[in-house]
Design a protein around this nucleic acid. Structure first.
Lengths: 213, 213
DNA sequence: CCTAATATTTCCCCCGTGATGAATAACGGG
DNA sequence: CCCGTTATTCATCACGGGGGAAATATTAGG
């Protein structure tokens, strides 16, 4: 008789939790949060859908577990912050482009953004991450007058690049080669890093600046 | 007896279609695409939910009808393009900020973006709109070498501002006053409008530019 | 004015989703 | 060996979008 998976605990010690996480990870990153159903994940993991509730509480819980699993891409950003301020925009641009162009990490980030637009809680998560991991760090790295504002503007620019290139895929930015991208976006990024009245970050302070109140 | 709304066509000529549209419009713009249910719209319009299917085919159909109802915000952008190139960034910034800060139009745009993240078709719509209404128009306005690329970068910057300020609400950009916003974002926008090697758009062509192949 | 076609409207049902609670089986410490 | 804990499935629930069929009003054709 078809003695299928009867009710109750399975024999042995199959790490079902991890198994579910792996399936969920791949599906979420390749199809986006909304387009994946718990049932399909459960089916692919050969497990009852209720197990997901049992282990992770909810679909969002599962998504959160998947997210916290993989390495933080903010680390790449933080790494790009170190070094000469003059070439910081180039480093950040290359780093961001690399991360988002990567099929694995890029899919993950797109999944996050897609979830953020849909759900308020996840939008707050994105906001938090952006502020903490990018704006604050950059502001600390910059220092000086208006550091926080300039850091915010810098991150806004990078966000715009990412959204147009990788999420909306607006031409011609979407299909530009990385080199051209860096050339195109370095000037504005540098412009926003400059304190008003200075021509070069950390440059000659005797340059004619605006009157400081 | 409570002779409630019996089955069949109502007497008179109540413009139910328009009535549904009005309710849907308000709900979609105030709560976002995903968070509004057809049933709740139908209830508020005092109508059976199947009527929405009848008139608009699907939820997306209803959303599309709602969108095509109101005026295009790209017109504001196009209007800001006219005038002196030197102060174009300021005009665009003020215009964009005004439109998105408006409770009515802003809600609508947020609803669109939220829908775009959820559905592929709507994402394509956003991409199309951005390319046609912003990049191409700006490129035509700019002219000159690399006009299309610079227009793309410009729009990427504006997109980034919008996403950080109005969608993700990342500080400090989210709560800056409009004046400060314009001051902060004008330099990078101007930087991207400049042809490489020129200091001012439409400026002295004898300035040392790159060799043209 | 009468009747057939058409438009609008409700009712009832389907299916898929996320979530919960009860039942059941294996595990593990005593 | 016994019993609490953990893992697993099953049976549902409430809700969301969608569709078909019947009922009623309006309109067109004579």
């Amino acid at each position: 008789m078809n003695n299928g998976p009867r009710r109750g605990r399975r024999t042995g010690s199959p790490d079902t939790r991890t198994q579910i996480l792996e399936v969920a990870r791949r599906r979420f990153f390749s199809e986006g949060y909304q387009n994946v159903t718990l049932r399909s994940i459960a089916a692919e993991a050969a497990v009852d859908a209720a197990l997901i509730s049992y282990f992770f509480g909810s679909k969002k819980g599962l998504f959160g577990a998947v997210l916290s699993l993989s390495a933080n891409p903010a680390d790449f950003f933080a790494q790009a912050l170190e070094g000469d301020l003059t070439t910081l925009p180039q480093r950040v641009l290359r780093s961001v482009d690399l991360v988002w162009a990567d099929p694995e990490a890029g899919s993950r980030l797109r999944a996050i953004v897609s979830g953020a637009a849909d759900d308020v809680a996840m939008a707050a998560l994105v906001k938090e991450a952006l502020e903490r991991e990018m704006v604050d760090r950059l502001a600390a790295r910059l220092g000086g007058r208006d550091a926080h504002r300039r850091a915010g503007a810098f991150c806004a620019q990078v966000t715009g690049l990412v959204m147009t290139r990788f999420v909306f895929r607006v031409e011609p930015v979407a299909s530009m080669r990385p080199d051209a991208l860096v050339r195109l976006f370095t000037p504005p990024l540098r412009a926003v890093l400059l304190e008003p009245g200075r021509r070069r970050p950390g440059g000659d302070p005797s340059a004619p600046g605006r009157k400081r109140s």
